[in-house]
Nucleic acid binder design. Structure first.
Lengths: 178, 178
DNA sequence: ATTCTCCTATCTATCAGTAGGTAGATAGAT
DNA sequence: ATCTATCTACCTACTGATAGATAGGAGAAT
């Protein structure tokens, strides 16, 4: 009957909650209730909250870069457009923050494995964007700066637009990037 | 004996914790313990956590704009430099996030009064920056976009630098702004 | 001056709710 | 018989919040 794949559902529910209110916004009990099982059963799939949080960040990161594709693939301008669109779609269609943006804001209070996975996400982003900008002819240093600027603006634009409940603010903040 | 001003100390301690780990990072008990009183006494000064969170955001916002000064005052270029420096100083000297940046990231899970005070902070920022950019000759729309871009980049740069534990990333992300 | 009254700021003690986590039993499939 | 996935039942710790007592000071009334 198309296996329920409980572990995946746990991650789906936890991710949605985390991208709404951060690491403290999801609990074993709430997740269990939404699936229709008991909280002890969630512990069967993810022994601790640390482990669940880490798995969350890793899956999010993997999916993100699968969607973006090879930084040496399509045209750089096209890749950058795709990058900006990835954030915009998450915000406008799903109404959700970037998981690692939320985690990043509270990183000093996160369990070490979750903090580590969050850092890994940003490191991958810097690397991916750095490659794309270098393909556009920028020197190493300039490419790295452009990458940092891009990530910062997009993460901040999500927060701003979300806080003000005005998706147009995202576009306004991002207009200079493309 | 220079009154201890307990209410102010409560706000100081709560602000530091909130700017580290968000709204759930401070509790009445922890604050009380740090001051050396009981948690019930903290409720005397701030009846509910909602009220404390709201006061936190309002005081933060007020102090922020007192430090920035009149947007019609100094030279626009000087005001923008000061604006960027305000974020950089908070990050590098205090090692803390922008309070409303953290609250903004988890805004959907905040009590309404706290969410409202957070929105007010961003609204004041948009207004302040919009005025400065218009003094630089930008049209209304362009000034508003530039304001959104500025706020987004700075908030995001703080998250990025903090997550990667690398203050240089803040400067890299922000280099294009000045 | 002394006493009475009120206010401020704290205390003790307690509550219900929720958190993450664990031990051990159980039903069903292989 | 073993493995998978769930259950029941429970634990400790912490959360925000409340009721009611208390100590000390300020001001007014006697």
């Amino acid at each position: 009957m198309a296996k329920p794949d409980t572990a995946e559902r746990i991650l789906d529910i936890a991710e949605k909650a985390a991208r709404t209110g951060g690491y403290n916004a999801f609990s074993f009990r709430e997740i269990a209730a939404e699936i229709g099982i008991k909280s002890a059963s969630v512990h069967y799939h993810f022994p601790t909250k640390d482990a669940l949080g880490e798995a969350l960040a890793e899956r999010y990161s993997d999916n993100f870069f699968i969607a973006l594709g090879d930084p040496q693939g399509a045209e750089p301008a096209e890749l950058l457009k795709r990058y900006v669109a990835a954030y915009g779609t998450a915000l406008k269609q799903d109404g959700l923050m970037c998981l690692c943006g939320v985690f990043g804001a509270e990183i000093a209070d996160l369990p070490p494995p979750v903090a580590s996975a969050t850092r890994a996400f940003f490191a991958r982003n810097l690397e991916w964007l750095g490659q794309v900008y270098q393909r556009q002819g920028l020197q190493r240093d300039a490419a790295d700066r452009a990458a940092a600027h891009m990530i910062a603006t997009l993460e901040g634009a999500m927060i701003l637009a979300r806080a003000m409940e005005d998706a147009a603010l995202f576009d306004a903040a991002v207009a200079r990037l493309s």
